[in-house]
């Protein structure tokens, strides 16, 4: 009986706080993405404008470890039973990837362009309760390109 009450409490806590946290996180992601949209990021190995002289380049990275809440974990467990797309994990990974890319961009605000962006995902909660994915780490890395002073800004549009 006690176990059931504890699980139910966790469920309610997970649902309420998880939902609040996710909403807050998405709002912050949208706001920051709007600001950083001027920094072109591609997965190509060459800069967009090959003719522009480059002053220097450096390796930049951004990462985040993010965890799913108790309620969604249970929901995903149920979904496993019926099969189909697991929405709760989709939003978790979406949030983690966008956050990692945002952090990468924020680490080099004066760069003109980021090329060869790679995103890597790993689950770091192995050995915890069961082998269910609880938290994921997303690492984004790329090469930041700085143009010579006075060169025109590239544009994706």
């Amino acid at each position: 009986m006690d176990g059931l009450i504890i699980s139910l409490t966790f469920l309610v806590l997970g649902y309420v706080f998880g939902k609040l946290a996710e909403g807050r996180h998405y709002r912050s992601i949208h706001a920051r993405e709007e600001i950083l949209v001027r920094l072109p990021t591609t997965s190509c190995k060459k800069p967009i404008k090959t003719s522009t002289p480059i002053s220097h380049a450096e390796l930049v990275h951004g990462h985040v470890v993010i965890s799913i809440d108790y309620f969604k974990r249970l929901l995903a467990g149920l979904r496993n039973f019926f099969g189909g797309s697991v929405r709760s994990y989709e939003t978790l990974l979406d949030r983690a990837r966008r956050e990692a890319v945002l952090r990468l961009k924020e680490s080099c605000p004066t760069a003109n362009e980021i090329i060869n962006l790679r995103i890597e995902t790993s689950s770091i909660s192995k050995g915890g309760s069961g082998d269910r994915v609880g938290s994921v780490e997303v690492l984004a890395y790329g090469t930041a390109i700085y143009y010579e002073q006075g060169s025109a800004q590239p544009s994706l549009l």
Binding site: G14, F17, G18, S67, I68, G128, S135
Partner: peptide
């Protein structure tokens, strides 16, 4: 981190560790 696992969200301790 295991408490944070109930509520969900960023695990700052692990983010720091991996950084």
């Amino acid at each position: 981190a295991s408490i944070k696992n109930i509520f969900g969200g960023e695990l700052k301790g692990y983010t720091e560790l991996l950084g």
